[in-house]
Design a protein around this nucleic acid. Structure first.
Lengths: 206, 206
DNA sequence: TAGATTGTTAATCGATTAACAATC
DNA sequence: TAGATTGTTAATCGATTAACAATC
């Protein structure tokens, strides 16, 4: 693997390749080319080859890429060749939907805990999980060593909760609250805000 | 307004500025600078000035930007100075969570219909909405003139459903299904896939 | 072998940043 | 006026694309 620093924009495309390759493998395909993969993900063949070649020579001239081999390599690069425990903070509608989502486990994630500060929700069962008290969150997350959180709480309390998550050792946050979070440089945040995503498209609507 | 084609990467930042300005306005602030706004959204002051200046001269040297004026202008540019009807396709957990989400209305969107093909869900009430039969979707969406859809169905049926949406006149799709959609060039798609977003961050986790 | 496709280089294209005159 | 901050230009930086030798 290349020791140089890989641009984040390349890293951001790898999960898309991974997902498409997983889909191809599910369909029984054995090999693919940068051309074919590009058509599936809407990215040029040249860019796919360049992206992949940052990490090694995984293809063969004339025949392309072995899907299962490239899957293994991408999972290894993205570190999803293991199962990451994650927590959910906020047991509202969105927290519930994520807690019940079946799509995490075969993509490398396991929802291990869910927290809320609403007394009426604490103790409630969601599938295998029981809603725990946010007051105990820092302690429990520290003890668990969990590094990844999904935030599904109101924007008003998102920053203070983020500060607690960082204190608890969380290093990656998937933020569903419609607010920009301030975090130390070693903490990553990804934003999911449906209204913001929709507003990116209305510009083009007549 | 500038008649030149504005790069999509600039358009994609405007909703983030809009959200931050709305937050500032809610806090009672009247004016801001590119410097201050930049600190809120994690973008350089120079870039914010350059982005905004694509559309006109909305600031004043020495004093910065009037928040309410810039809000008005950004809403106008993004066309969210009106209320867009949107539909939800798929009344599972995620569809339910979006149907109940309170954050759309003051960002320019109104959930007008929700569809599912599961007989046990059709007729079910979700807030003010009643789940309708996907079989009637094309007809009803055509009649309504609605242009925007949120897709919360399994990946296996996402492409065929997308084809129907396009036929029905939908021009913007917020896709929660973990699959790349193939659409004509005049249709926009935004992707929300929590597993993909998480996989973008595990690369950086130890 | 002939055809296909990779990995990589160089050229192009586009986005970001730094700097500063204009001006509120 | 003095200080602050915009809008814009030019320079820098980075990403994408095109092309092709290498080779399966």
């Amino acid at each position: 693997m290349n020791a140089d620093k890989i641009p984040d924009i390349i890293i951001s495309r790898l999960p898309v390749y991974l997902r498409a390759l997983q889909h191809m493998a599910d369909q029984g395909m054995r090999t693919t080319s940068s051309q074919e993969l590009g058509e599936h993900v809407g990215i040029s063949a040249a860019q796919i080859r360049k992206d992949i070649s940052q990490f090694g020579e995984f293809g063969k001239q004339g025949t392309g890429y072995s899907i299962s081999y490239l899957l293994d390599k991408l999972r290894e690069i993205l570190k999803v060749d293991r199962l990451w425990d994650v927590i959910i903070v906020g047991a509202g509608d969105m927290g519930h939907a994520l807690a019940r989502y079946q799509g995490f486990v075969n993509r490398g994630f396991n929802v291990a805990m869910i927290f809320d500060n609403d007394k009426s929700k604490i103790g409630q069962k969601i599938g295998d999980l029981t809603v725990e008290d946010t007051a105990e969150m820092v302690e429990k997350v520290k003890a668990s060593g969990i590094r990844i959180a999904m935030l599904t709480i109101p924007a008003t309390v998102a920053q203070e909760t983020t500060d607690k998550l960082v204190e608890a050792g969380i290093r990656a946050i998937l933020n569903y609250a419609p607010i920009n979070l301030i975090v130390p440089p070693d903490v990553r945040v990804q934003y999911i805000d449906p209204a913001t995503h929709l507003q990116r498209m209305t510009y083009y609507c007549e």
